[in-house]
Write a protein that binds this DNA or RNA. Structure first.
Lengths: 122, 122
DNA sequence: CCCTGTTGACCACATTTGTAGTCGATCTTA
DNA sequence: TAAGATCGACTACAAATGTGGTCAACAGGG
């Protein structure tokens, strides 16, 4: 059972992945443009993420600073793996095909994918 | 707001995408190896999927036959798009990179991806 | 023709998720 | 030094989700 991070919690994780070591009110500040949450809501989400083992805390005076306990890349891997397993029979190519069809790939994407395939070919 | 299909519901959808027009007990039969659900549970999930507009029903005698109202590909596209937006800044290449890193790509995947990239290059 | 099994309709209930409120302790500022 | 701001702990509560139960109608086997 991988740690399950909900959509709302993920928004918090993204902030902390970008800037580890923030306190609750700074996270609220970073989210203000983006989410319409009160500080209370953010604190609840932070608590839940700590309970789940997704964040670690350090005390600084009477407040907590939050750092990721689950790395962004690790989470990206599980999430991508889950999607591909659940919906694409574990195969990456059809997933990319649907993405390309749904929204197109940027030139940059195409270039990066080519480079990636190059490194993978034995 | 795209129709939200939960993980449990998705298992049902997959059966019906494969074999549209089944009734509840046949779906239960198809799931028996895979899920440990009673017929009651399956019927509840079917009802919810109909309420959500993901399935359509036809009456056959005193039972219902279920067919997809949301196509598999359409759902794959939304789900893939959501993942890529929420976790990869909308970029496909990093998603594939994480997948490759997490579980490797099969030779077939690599070949298909190359073919796909070929068709996309203007 | 009666019993049994199956069907959909409706109900139940714990857990998770989204969104916040209360409270006592503490920090800060006038 | 007293009042307000802020902190974490704890509580609240509706909606969604997972899982299954009840019940009345009906269909089919003996």
């Amino acid at each position: 059972m991988t740690v399950q991070i909900t959509p709302a919690e993920l928004e918090i994780m993204k902030i902390i992945w970008d800037r580890p070591g923030l306190g609750a009110s700074e996270i609220a500040g970073a989210l203000v443009d983006q989410q319409d949450w009160t500080i209370k809501t953010i604190k609840t989400l932070l608590t839940r993420l700590v309970e789940k083992g997704a964040l670690a805390t350090t005390s600084e005076g009477r407040r907590y600073l939050y750092t990721p306990k689950i790395a962004r890349k690790a989470y990206q891997k599980t999430a991508a793996g889950q999607l591909v397993d659940r919906l694409f029979n574990g195969r990456a190519a059809p997933l990319v095909a649907q993405l390309a069809d749904a929204r197109g790939l940027t030139d940059e994407d195409i270039a990066e994918l080519e480079a990636l395939l190059g490194t993978l070919k034995s």
